[in-house]
Design a protein around this nucleic acid. Structure first.
Lengths: 206, 206
DNA sequence: AAATAACGCTACCGTTTGGTAACTTATAAA
DNA sequence: TTTATAAGTTACCAAACGGTAGCGTTATTT
């Protein structure tokens, strides 16, 4: 095996482990939230010791920031992979479904956390802000297109629609429906989409 | 002044202080969330020392539980004070407005927190669960009435409607609209109500 | 085979935080 | 005036957590 090959192999395992760490972080973040996670939790989950974590990430904040960045990247990738034939409304419906299924599968919402502390250090990460802004601009365009098509409420400002859309991806109703409502994932997704786009009020008869 | 009078006066100040403590707790809960509050924070906010807090509440969990109970009681009181002439839909609209204005004024949502830890100890408090269940049953009845009147989507199960309704009272979109959207409280309330009942999709022309 | 670099881990540190012991002060009764 | 009680505070403890120093082990180079 060549010298370069060896190096690449090392880099590869390093990257793989980094990904495993981010997976564990994501899972724990979804389950317990930032404040209740300890670095020992993450280390145990991925099968390493705490000091080894710090070889990859220089702080807890840094670790969580990277996990959030990866998540936004996944959302961006999902959006870009959508075929051009989809209508703006379909794009949003599918993105919501994707986000909900990630959550139902143990992932976390890509909405910047409700925690003031988390939001503070996320907004200080240029890399995170750049991606979040890119996602926001893309979706803003989709919303504008959808309104022009008559697919979204033109009487609502774009930001109201967008923030509401984001909030549906991390809506606590999902947890409650799963815990107390005994619905399966498909039913939860369907209901959340229904509520998101048509609300809980009376709908026009089709 | 009589002996009894003195005693009553003492009880009175005791109760007043207890209320002040709960006020401070509520305010801090809304601002920072359970995990980031320290008992010293609460003590400072209300102008006492930490050990004095423990004369009133035997633990942090107990303190927060009492604060949540008081909040549910306020919601119950608000519901019961609504005139009989109101339609079920109006009841829900007004309750949502009340909850949103409490939040915008620095209060907190009455939805059992998203935090697993908080939910765990809340559900272990019989007094809390009793009240929460009472509120839930009352609202369930309101939802049923509203559906019968054709004011809410009859194709949605009651629990989907209820959990979605609860979630709107603690919707992070509110924070984002205030932070980045530059809306005043009235506009935020109006938009949140609009989204809650009619969703973000196209509405029927009136 | 010797030297060295990389890696991972145990054991630890400083700080924070929930909770308490015990001292001080003020009040009220006798 | 003296004694007993209640309230409030300072000062502290133990546990948990983020983060690190430094050692042992493996693998790589010469």
């Amino acid at each position: 095996m060549s010298f370069l090959g060896k190096l690449r192999f090392k880099d590869q395992t390093f990257k793989l482990r980094e990904n495993a760490i981010l997976d564990a972080t994501t899972k724990l973040l979804a389950a317990k939230g930032f404040d209740l996670i300890t670095m020992d939790d993450v280390a145990d989950e991925v099968g390493l010791s705490k000091p080894s974590l710090y070889k990859h990430f220089k702080s807890k904040e840094d670790l969580v920031t990277e996990a959030m960045i990866r998540l936004v990247d996944e959302a961006l990738a999902y959006l870009e992979q959508q075929p051009d034939t989809m209508s703006p409304l379909e794009r949003l419906r599918c993105l919501l479904e994707w986000a909900l299924r990630v959550r139902l599968g143990g992932g976390m919402p890509f909405l910047p956390s409700t925690s003031a502390h988390v939001r503070a250090f996320l907004t200080q990460s240029l890399r995170y802000v750049t991606r979040a802004l890119k996602l926001h601009r893309l979706l803003d365009q989709v919303v504008s297109d959808a309104k022009r098509n008559g697919e979204l409420a033109s009487e609502l400002p774009n930001d109201v629609i967008l923030y509401s859309f984001y909030s549906r991806t991390c809506d606590p109703a999902v947890e409650y429906l799963r815990l107390y409502g005994k619905y399966d994932d498909d039913a939860i997704v369907a209901h959340m989409q229904s509520v998101c786009f048509a609300g809980i009020g009376t709908r026009p008869r089709s």
